[in-house]
Simulated assay, not measured.
Amino acid sequence: MLQGIHHVAIICSDYQRSRAFYVELLGLKVVAENYRAERDSWKLDLALNNDCQIELFSFPQPPPRPSQPEAQGLRHLAFRVDDLDAVIAHLQQADIAVEPVRVDPFTDKRFTFFADPDGLPLELYEIQP
């Protein structure tokens, strides 16, 4: 049956700003980038370590989606990292606010949250090799 996550789709409000955030800041690899004139929409396929993809979409005037506090629906997108402190430092150098590090009481793993340009909650979850 299910074998893994293929992709996560994100609709952004400012395509160039979100493209720079996911590609330049977070380092995801561009797989494909297509503009659909009939929809006035960009679709950017991004690879994350060849395990998963993020599809970044733009549409004219997308309605905002509530995400705080704890709105119903997808809660957040979590990225697996080897060195949480190094990733936090990288984000902070780019003036990205990062929440204080917490420890999962069930796994004893360290994690934190930050947000993409549209406020989508993103998590960093440390899995040491």
Rank of each mutant, 00 (worst) to 15 (best):
F21D: 07
Q92V: 03
G73Q: 08
V23Q: 08
S18E: 03
R102C: 03
R75N: 13
A78K: 09
L120F: 14
D51A: 10
E126Y: 10
Y15A: 01
G73M: 06
F111V: 02
V98G: 01
Q16S: 14
A78I: 08
P129C: 02
D104G: 04
F59A: 12
F111K: 05
R75S: 12
D45F: 09
K109D: 13
D108F: 03
L84K: 03
I88Y: 01
L44I: 08
P62N: 06
I10A: 01
I11N: 07
N49A: 15
G4P: 10
H7Q: 08
F57D: 12
G27W: 05
R75Y: 15
L56M: 11
V98D: 00
N49M: 11
E123P: 01
R80Q: 15
D45M: 13
I54C: 08
G27H: 07
R19H: 15
C12P: 00
G119Y: 10
I10Q: 10
L2H: 04
D108T: 13
I5H: 07
P62W: 13
E24Y: 09
E33H: 09
P129F: 06
R36L: 12
F113K: 01
L28V: 07
A94L: 08
I11W: 12
K43N: 12
D95F: 04
A9W: 05
Q93L: 14
N34R: 14
C12V: 10
K43R: 13
I10M: 05
K29H: 13
R36S: 06
L91P: 01
D51F: 15
L26Y: 08
L44N: 02
A32D: 15
Y125K: 00
Q72W: 10
V30C: 06
F113N: 07
E38F: 11
L28P: 04
F59N: 11
Q3K: 12
E55N: 14
I88E: 03
D85I: 08
A47N: 15
F79R: 07
D14I: 00
P63F: 04
A9N: 15
L46A: 05
P63K: 11
L46R: 04
D95R: 06
R19G: 07
Q3R: 14
Q93G: 02
Q53F: 12
D51N: 13
I96L: 00
L48D: 09
R65P: 00
